[in-house]
Design a protein around this nucleic acid. Structure first.
Length: 266
DNA sequence: GCGACAG
DNA sequence: ATCTTGTCGC
């Protein structure tokens, strides 16, 4: 048996670090991360309606996390609003959000240092404790294999998955245009990634697709955050995307972030 | 110098 | 991420 990885509050994203220090911390995060299944719930029941699973294990509690930003009188984005929607068996169990001041601008590869603080603040407001966290952004598909899903997952030691709408880095192992729904294509490490060339980082997952060849829906780029393997990450995203392209927890967190934002705009 | 670049 | 109405198509 592998020893249970402990939470790592010492690796919480600090927006005041220098860039080199942030990158060094990400290498630590990647080293501490577990990119394989290491959880107790039954992933096969993630998409189940509700109630107790037939096997006796309870349907997993999944939380989606997303952010919206508040603008200042001057016109600058000075605050982040992080929203969390917890669901079980397709039903919303709890919704919470937190508003914190923004410290740094968006920099590709350093997203966790901009949004990690707000996210941790929102998750502290949650009274339930999720079996799985879904983030809007990358996990292992990251220059240093430490995207926001991996970073937050390691800090809290909670299984997590990264769900991005566009590819940050890595190379699809095949065509990702006009994929059929239910299809997935491997994303491998390339020269831009701090990993052996060809390492499986995640999958391009096609959850929805139009029938007509006229237009097409782009796939999601799903990768392990922490304590989840690439296949399980892709399966979970697909199983939770019941009605729309995005997994329901993430989609609802997205709309809730906008909804809650209005309450501050007035 | 050039290209790439989650949200 | 954000600014934003209507509009094309099933």
């Amino acid at each position: 048996m592998t020893p249970p990885p402990p939470p790592r509050p010492d690796l919480a994203p600090d927006a005041h670090l220098e860039r080199a220090e942030m990158e060094a911390m990400q290498r630590e995060i990647a080293a501490a991360a577990v990119f394989e299944d290491d959880f107790s719930f039954d992933p096969a029941t993630l998409g189940n309606p509700l109630g107790t699973a037939s096997s006796g294990t309870e349907t997993p509690l999944v939380a989606g996390v997303d952010q919206s930003f508040l603008t200042n009188e001057a016109g600058d984005q000075d605050r982040a609003l992080s929203a969390v929607v917890a669901m079980r068996g397709g039903e919303v169990i709890e919704r919470v959000h937190a508003v914190t001041s923004l410290e740094i601008p968006y920099v590709p590869g350093l997203l966790a240092f901009r949004e990690g603080g707000p996210i941790l603040a929102a998750l502290e407001e949650l009274s339930c404790d999720p079996d799985l966290l879904l983030f809007d952004g990358s996990g292992r598909i990251h220059f240093r294999q430490a995207g926001i899903a991996t970073h937050v997952g390691v800090v809290l030691d909670v299984p997590s998955v990264g769900v991005a709408k566009s590819l940050l880095c890595g190379e699809p192992r095949g065509d990702t245009e006009n994929l059929s729904p239910g299809t997935h294509v491997p994303i491998e490490a390339n020269s831009r990634v701090d990993a052996d060339e060809g390492t499986l980082l995640g999958y391009a997952v096609q959850t929805r697709q139009y029938d007509s060849p006229d237009r097409s829906i782009n796939p999601l780029y799903v990768s392990p955050g922490h304590r989840v393997g690439p296949e399980t990450a892709a399966d979970a995203a697909a199983a939770l995307a019941t009605t729309y392209k995005l997994p329901e927890p993430v989609r609802l967190a997205d709309s809730y972030a906008d909804e809650a934002k209005r309450e501050y705009t007035r």
